[in-house]
């Protein structure tokens, strides 16, 4: 299958899901950080669990390692994540939901949001040499929990699925209680 076609189709599915779950709205994103609305956490955990199962079902021979596994950099992932998290809490969106938000008609995302991401990309790119110092601190390369521990990846996937199912049962039960 043509890669461009597949990518477009998967993008449509992803954008559709992001809009339907409402993460294209400021309140839903920031209320996760305020611990008032758990939509984002539920959405992400379910996506991770589902994706993890499908990936293992389809690619058992490459389990453990493929070139597509994003490399680990302890300082880069953590510090980059922290800078990203601050920006996400300030803006109330992230790259995927920004694009999806433009799709539902958010004009601020189309103007200031896109401009911010492109300017930030220029900033990062021109100062790449400096940032590379951070990225290379604790750089461990491509690895997975399975390759580190030598344990079958299905164990971790099962744990993630168990966590999501428990999360689902507990929150559904709590919602019912609240209604009573």
């Amino acid at each position: 299958m043509d890669e461009a076609f597949v990518t477009a189709a998967l993008g449509i599915l992803f954008g559709f899901a992001l809009q339907k779950v409402g993460l294209t709205n400021y309140s839903i994103v920031i209320n996760q950080f305020r611990l008032k609305d758990w939509t984002m956490m539920k959405f992400m955990c379910t996506a991770i669990a589902t994706g993890s199962v499908i990936y293992l079902l389809f690619q058992p021979e490459t389990v453990g390692m493929t070139e597509t596994v994003p490399p680990v950099s302890i300082a880069g992932n953590l510090l980059g994540g922290a800078i990203f998290g601050a920006g996400m809490a300030i803006a109330g969106t992230c790259p995927g939901t920004l694009i999806a938000g433009i799709g539902q008609g958010n004009m601020d995302y189309l103007t200031a949001g896109l401009a911010g991401f492109i300017t930030g990309g220029l900033f990062f790119g021109f100062l790449f040499k400096f940032f590379l110092g951070i990225i290379m601190t604790g750089f461990l390369g491509e690895m997975t929990l399975s390759t580190i521990t030598g344990i079958n990846p299905w164990l971790f996937t099962d744990l993630i699925c168990g966590f999501v199912i428990t999360f689902y049962i507990l929150t559904s039960w709590k919602t019912k209680e609240d209604k009573v």
């Binding site: 920006g87 969106t93 930030g120």
Partner: peptide, 13 residues
Amino acid sequence: GCFLMATGAGIAG
């Protein structure tokens, strides 16, 4: 916020 996210995403990969 978006400027910070672009920088953070660059560093994090």
